[in-house]
Write a protein that binds this DNA or RNA. Structure first.
Lengths: 208, 208
DNA sequence: TTCACAAGTAACCGTTCGGTTACTTACATG
DNA sequence: CATGTAAGTAACCGAACGGTTACTTGTGAA
């Protein structure tokens, strides 16, 4: 193992940056802190990523990539109907639980007004998996599994936002509800409830 | 009208701080900028609010107060059953739409891990209105209007998170869905859909 | 073995920012 | 109309931060 490894340095800086940016946001994060966390010299950050904003962008696209991976693995299961909806909620929930930095980073982006957000390339997986879900809802409607009056597009949006909000507002909600929303058992209950919420709203009658 | 008015200065600094903090967050906000926006001298901020964090806390409690006002006016309507649920969603939606800084400030708080959040005093309106809603759901269950299997507590939480998420993640969602989620007509559609989502999930059968 | 170049280091720079000090001015009170 | 005090100002300070410069060291091909 060589003592000097550009690729490895780059990767370790990126990981350290993800942690620092997720914790403190773009403004709050310190380039010196990222250098320290990664065990690399600050200089290297500028060599590899240009500047602080370039590093931020790389971190964002990295966490998006992980999200797309999770989405793809769901699509590969080839599910449909109720089972698809349930697994979709589970997939999002599990991903967000396992990737708190994804939640934080996207929230930071939103608060900065999306000013560092590059437009998503057409036909990217985000859109693809969305389309996949909308199509599945449409098919379910045709088959009579889902209610005829539901709007697939709005429903898809609601599913994503509903999952996300369980994580993005833990602290203020915990305070408001006087309960810890961060624990594993609570999150499991929230996951189940969220799945029921979506299914309860779109399904015709009958068994769960 | 006196040229020197401590109360008015305090108020105007607070308003300027709300705007600055909502836009930039705690770390990103600049005390100098708040002074400039309020047309007051920076020194006065430290006289009235101690330090940057004291100012932040005052801003937070001010926007919470406005929220509690909206909640109280809903409670005063003395509604119940389906009508209450619908109006509750409307109330939250309208409030969040009219108070973007509330959304931003709470999101900033969450991202900082709630570290500047003081514990909510027992019996405060936030809890009260929550209890009011939970009780109403319980009553609806007893009356057969709402499904017997719903969990009122989780449902209340879902309602709030579902409303909130429509605002807190506009930009990344707009990008993902390739549609502007900030426009008035879109928000009206989201409001209606959100009400249907909650009602569809909790109501037994029948007409809307 | 040499040597060119990529990888890495440490010290530094100009600016910005939260917070303070020393001073000035308006106004209510007697 | 004098005067104590609350309201307001401007200039300043030390620390921190993003980014850079000048220099050193490990590595692999000739």
């Amino acid at each position: 193992m060589p003592e000097r490894d550009a690729e490895r340095s780059r990767r370790e800086i990126l990981m350290a940056a993800e942690a620092e940016f997720a914790q403190k946001g773009f403004y709050g994060a310190r380039v010196d802190a990222i250098a320290r966390r990664s065990g690399r010299n600050k200089r290297m950050i500028y060599v590899y990523f240009g500047d602080k904003e370039g590093l931020w962008r790389q971190v964002i696209s990295e966490v998006y990539r992980r999200m797309e991976e999770a989405e793809q693995s769901l699509i590969d299961l080839q599910l449909s109907g109720r089972e698809l909806v349930r697994r979709m909620v589970y997939t999002y929930f599990d991903f967000l639980q396992a990737n708190p930095s994804f939640v934080s980073l996207l929230s930071w982006e939103n608060l900065d007004g999306g000013c560092r957000l590059e437009p998503l390339p057409e036909g990217k997986i985000g859109r693809q998996s969305l389309q996949f879900f909308v199509d599945a809802l449409e098919r379910g409607k045709a088959e009579g599994i889902f209610r005829p009056e539901i709007d697939p597009w709005h429903t898809a949006l609601s599913m994503i936002t509903t999952c996300f909000a369980n994580f993005s507002n833990r602290y203020t909600l915990s305070r408001l509800f006087g309960a810890d929303l961060c624990g594993a058992e609570m999150l499991a209950a929230r996951k189940e409830h969220t799945a029921r919420l979506i299914l309860g709203c779109i399904c015709t009658e009958g068994e769960e």
